Computed example of a mutant assay.
Amino acid sequence: MNILKPLRKRVLGRVHVPAVTLAHGGGGKAMKDLIDDVFVSAFAPLDAHVLEDQARFDLAALARHGDRLAFTTDAFVVDPLFFPGGDIGKLAVCGTINDLAVGGALPLYLSCAVVIEEGTKIELLRQVAMSMAETARSAGVSIVTGDTKVVQRGACDKVFITTTGIGVIPQNVSLGIEGVRPGDGILVNGLLGDHGASILCARGDLALDTEIESDCAALHELIGALLRAAPGTRCIRDATRGGIATVLNEMAEASGVSIDIDEAAIPLRDEVRGFCEILGLDPLYLANEGKIVMAVPPEEIDAALSTLRAHPLGAGAAIVGRAGSGEAGRVTMQTFFGGRRIVDMLVGEQLPRIC
C-alpha cells in the first residue's frame, strides 16, 4: 500500500520593522516576510501550505456557472487612502466586482498587485489588506494571486493597487452597451455623487461640517436580482469616473439613440446638491462607486424598480429618463426651470484621483 507523504505546513514569515524598505521589494527573505505577514495572512486560507506563481482553476467547476468567462482589470490610486465609507482596499475589490457584474457575470476570483512606496507604514498595509479580505469574503469572492513591488520614496503615493477579476456569465444573459432601444427607461439604483463628494471632503481642503460617506459597495447580488425580475434589461453600466453623464453619452453613442433625462428625477442628497452649488460642480459628473445606470424595456420597468427598491443597495432607485429616436448619441436634460440643455461627456477632470 502506498501512503502519501503529508505536505509540510508552510511557516509564514513576520515583518519586524514599522515601515516598508526597498529590501521588501528585493525578492529575498524581507519580501517573503512582507507578503506572508500582510497579504497571505489576510487573503489565503489558514492551512495554505504553498504559493505558486499563478492561480489554478477547474474548468468544469467554472462551466457549472455559465458558458462564458468575463475578465476585467482596474487600477486604484485614490487620495486619500481612507475616506468615510471606505478605503482603497474596499474600493479595489468592489470596483472590480462591479465591472464583472454589470456584464451579467457572477464574480468569482480576483488578483491583487500592489505598488508600495518606500517608508509606508506596515500597519497601514495591514489595514488595506484586511479591508480587501473582508470585502471579498462578504461578497463571496476569493483573492487568489497577486504581486508586490516596492518603489523609492516619491515614485508613488504610499499605495497603488491593481486588481483583476474573473467571473462567469450564465447562459441566456446578454447585456451590451449597444443594446439600448427607443422607449427604454433609464434607471439608477439610488443617490448619485456621494463618492466624489466624500473624497473631496476627506482631503480636508474645505472646512465643511457635513461628512458625506462614499457609496462604495459590491453590486453583484443587486444586479442578479434585477436580471431575474427584468430579464430583458438591455444594458447596465457602473457610473464611476465621469459620473452618470459620461455613462449616458457612451450608451447613446454606442446604441445610436438619443437619451433625455429629467433633472427633477435625479436622486441627490441635499448635502451633495449644496456641496456642488458651493463649488460650482455638476453632480451629473461626480463619481460613484455603488451606483449603476440601467436601460430597461418599457414593459419591465415596474418590475425592475420594485426589485431594486426591495434591496438595501437599491432603496433609492428611480427612473431618470428615456431613450428616444432623436439625434443619435445626443443626451439632453429637462431642467428645473423648464428648459433643455445638452449633457456632454466630461472633458478633463472635475476631481483628481477619486478612484
Rank of each mutant, 00 (worst) to 15 (best):
R14F: 12
V17R: 10
V17Q: 10
V20H: 01
T21K: 08
A23K: 12
G25A: 03
G28V: 07
G28R: 08
M31E: 15
I35M: 15
F39K: 02
V40F: 15
A44S: 08
L46V: 11
H49A: 15
H49W: 14
H49Y: 14
L62R: 07
L62S: 04
R64E: 14
H65D: 10
R68Q: 10
F76G: 01
V78K: 08
D79L: 13
P80E: 04
F83M: 00
F83R: 00
P84D: 01
G89R: 05
G89D: 02
A101Y: 02
A105F: 09
P107L: 09
L108W: 06
Y109E: 03
V114L: 08
E118M: 00
G119T: 11
I122C: 02
A133H: 02
D147G: 15
A155E: 11
C156D: 00
C156T: 09
K158I: 11
T162E: 13
G167S: 02
P170G: 01
Q171A: 14
N172R: 12
S174A: 14
V180T: 04
V180R: 00
V180L: 03
G185N: 00
V188G: 01
A207R: 14
E211I: 14
E211K: 09
D215E: 04
C216P: 01
H220P: 06
G232E: 10
R234A: 15
R234I: 10
R237H: 04
T246M: 09
A252E: 05
E253D: 14
G256H: 06
V257A: 05
V257E: 04
D262H: 07
R269E: 12
D270G: 12
F275K: 00
F275Q: 02
C276S: 10
C276M: 08
C276V: 03
E277I: 06
I278Y: 14
Y285D: 05
G290D: 07
G290N: 04
K291Q: 12
V296H: 01
E299S: 14
A303M: 08
T307A: 06
L308M: 11
P312W: 01
S325N: 13
G329W: 00
G339N: 08
R340W: 10
I342W: 12
D344R: 13
M345H: 10
G348C: 03
G348S: 06
E349C: 12
Q350I: 12
